[in-house]
């Protein structure tokens, strides 16, 4: 009797069906075109972003996943069973007719999507316009009760392995329809390689070989994380600001006028002399004319106190920023400096 009452009280609430998320048993190796294993590649199952693995030194990944149990009972309070499907929306099952409202917030708590509908009982998908890449929190309300869930959207590269297609989809994230890949996809990311999506033919494939192309055919061992990322070219005459240990530091940044995120640029730092600034170094060294768009140039504003670690930390911070945002050859960093800046060069 007690059991029957329990079932009745939950009948009007929302529950998410778990029937279309079977167990997953995948194993494989990620390689480059030459057949060499790629270590530290991130392999993500698109249907559930949390289901992922990172390849080991032999390029091997292993994904074992079992869907959450308990789908036979109403799951309004069970966050694990509410999910977002890229290209579709939020999927749930309504056990009795009722008003349903959905709210999606970003990590800052701002409402980015909402939907409200009176629905009959059954399996529903509330459609969502594609969301920018990021992490989101959803809340689904019905009959005075609610369930919350969290999801992360990634850029779907849709099997594109061509550098041009890659950069265009980077600028305009798109999402695959589930119908195109009934078992979902594995998206593989690794520094220096084209992010590649492999449709799954089976959920129990333990002999997968996933081959990735290096970005622009360049050497993955030297490419920065910024390769393949969309970058905005700053005004080379306007100061860029970077917070270093709580202090705002400034520098000028020159990106080639025809900057390409598939070219590994050398980065040249030019330090000004005593009493000068980055603009003076830019003017004095005339590096941009010499390099003819062949390099990224950085002109920090510094004090160059010999033996003081603050300018070294500033240099390290800029370099980190360059690697993260722009495509550079991490083994072609050149430093030059005039006078005090030259002393700083020797100290570095």
């Amino acid at each position: 009797m007690l059991h029957a009452i329990h079932a009745l009280s939950c009948a009007a609430s929302l529950s998410v069906s778990a029937i279309d998320i079977p167990p997953l048993n995948l194993r494989g190796v990620v390689k480059d075109r030459a057949g060499a294993p790629i270590a530290n590649a991130l392999v993500v199952w698109n249907r559930m972003m949390a289901v992922s693995d990172t390849t080991d030194e032999q390029g091997v990944f292993r994904i074992l996943w079992t869907p959450p149990t308990g789908n036979s009972s109403p799951a309004l309070q069970d966050d694990r069973q509410t999910f977002y499907r890229p290209g579709e929306g939020v999927r749930f099952e309504l056990l009795q007719p009722g008003d349903v409202s959905l709210r999606i917030r970003n990590v800052r708590g701002e409402l980015v999507r909402s939907a409200r509908s009176s629905l009959a009982a059954g399996l529903w998908t509330l459609p969502l316009d594609p969301l920018p890449v990021g992490t989101y929190f959803g809340q689904l309300d019905a009959d005075g009760r609610h369930t919350t869930f969290r999801f992360t959207t990634v850029q779907a590269m849709s099997g594109s392995r061509h550098p041009v297609a890659e950069s265009s989809s980077t600028a305009n994230p798109s999402f695959r329809s589930v119908a195109e890949a009934p078992f979902g996809d594995l998206t593989v990311k690794s520094t220096g390689y084209m992010t590649t999506t492999f449709p799954l033919a089976s959920l129990t494939d333990t002999t997968m070989v996933l081959v990735m192309d290096a970005i622009g055919g360049i050497d993955s061992s030297t490419a920065s994380e910024g390769c393949g990322k969309t970058a905005t070219r700053p005004d080379p005459a306007s100061k860029q600001t970077l917070s270093v240990s709580g202090t705002n530091r400034t520098y000028l940044l020159f990106l080639p006028t025809n900057y390409s995120n598939t070219t590994e640029y050398p980065v040249v730092f030019a330090f000004h002399g005593g009493g000068g600034n980055g603009a003076a170094a830019r003017n004095d060294f005339k590096l941009e004319a010499a390099a003819n768009n062949g390099a990224i140039m950085v002109y920090p504003d510094g004090g160059w106190n010999y033996g003081s670690g603050t300018d070294v930390a500033f240099f390290d911070a800029i370099l980190k920023e360059m690697k993260a945002k722009y495509c550079m050859n991490t083994k072609r960093v050149v430093v030059t400096g005039f006078s005090l800046g030259g002393i700083f060069v020797n100290g570095l």
């Binding site: 960093v333 050149v334 430093v335 005039f338 005090l340 030259g342 002393i343 060069v345 020797n346 100290g347």
Partner: peptide, 15 residues
Amino acid sequence: MRAIVPVAGSGPNPN
């Protein structure tokens, strides 16, 4: 560091 080019500097230890 792939290369360094000090111009009119001194050091690494100025003295």
